[in-house]
């Protein structure tokens, strides 16, 4: 479990980023961390990994204080950063260098995943494009079998088939003892992958619900005309009509549109949260 209590954080000479943030992340879930630019999504991941320290409050990862950066904790966390520097070595050498540092690393799994992403395992990292490097890191992260996978914009730079492959890999390789946090702007890439949605804004959690709860409480309906629906919580113009976010009165789950949900929460979080 990842537990964040009363987190306060700011970068030097910058405004306060987190002010008393509380969050609890349970095992066996893939969390989507959504927020506007500069709301601290990447910072939150770095704080969880322990490479940044909170000014106040505490973050524990599996019971260990993240800022202690204990080796046992780091062996169980894989952080796929949006910006990374990879050494100019072959993929094979990269695996030889980093694989032994993760006790549960599975090389067969790595090769299988890399094959799925259509990356030649004999390639040199310096010869790969940004997207291909990301595929190597995603494959390595999943093969590390770490209990905590933190991914910052993992689909950024991936082509369309690779995004599909990413979703497939995540769903097949995900284990129930893991916690995966995916921070992203590319909401549509994560449809049908996330099990919980967290929206942060202004240093606070605006929304934190499981997808099952979302489906149970809210419904997304597309109507052709801009007709006013009295009970509509949010309306957005989409191709072919208007998409309404409505309370789910029928009990039938609808396909969740994360973009509409995000905009609805940003516009009036109280109105949305009142239904949970």
């Amino acid at each position: 479990m990842i537990q964040i209590n009363n987190l306060q954080f700011r970068y030097p000479r910058k405004p306060q980023l987190f002010q008393g943030l509380d969050l609890q992340l349970e095992q066996g879930r893939i969390y989507g961390l959504l927020g506007k630019n500069g709301t601290g999504k990447s910072t939150l991941l770095k704080l969880i990994q322990g490479v940044l320290f909170p000014q106040q409050g505490a973050i524990t990862v599996g019971g260990a204080l993240s800022s202690d950066r204990k080796a046992a904790m780091l062996e169980d966390i894989f952080f796929l950063s949006e910006e990374y520097e990879l050494p100019s070595i072959a993929i094979k050498a990269f695996v030889q260098a980093y694989g032994p540092l993760y006790p549960k690393y599975d090389n067969d799994k790595f090769n299988r995943l890399l094959e799925g992403f259509e990356v030649d395992a004999r390639s040199k990292l310096s010869e790969l494009s940004y997207g291909q490097k990301k595929k190597v890191l995603i494959s390595f992260g999943l093969a590390s079998n770490c209990r905590y996978l933190l991914m910052d914009e993992p689909t950024n730079g991936l082509d369309i088939p690779s995004k599909r492959q990413f979703r497939k890999a995540m769903l097949t390789e995900f284990r129930t003892d893991q916690i995966v946090i995916i921070s992203t702007h590319q909401i549509r890439d994560l449809n049908q992958l996330l099990e919980s949605v967290i929206i942060i804004e202004g240093g606070k959690i605006l929304f934190n619900q499981s997808v099952a709860e979302l489906e149970d409480k809210l419904t997304f309906e597309t109507r052709l005309n801009a007709e006013v629906v009295a009970e509509s919580l949010y309306t957005d113009r989409v191709a072919g009509g208007y998409l309404h976010l409505l309370p789910n009165t029928s009990g039938e789950p609808s396909e969740i549109d994360l973009e509409v949900l995000f905009n609805a929460v940003i516009e009036d979080q109280q109105k949305i949260n009142a239904h949970f």
Binding site: Q49, K70, A71, L74, E75, F79, S81, E83, E85, Y102
Partner: peptide, 12 residues
């Protein structure tokens, strides 16, 4: 990015 990488290496 280098600092994130180095500090996150699984070792004390």
């Amino acid at each position: 990015a280098g600092r994130v990488h180095f500090l996150g290496i699984p070792a004390s």
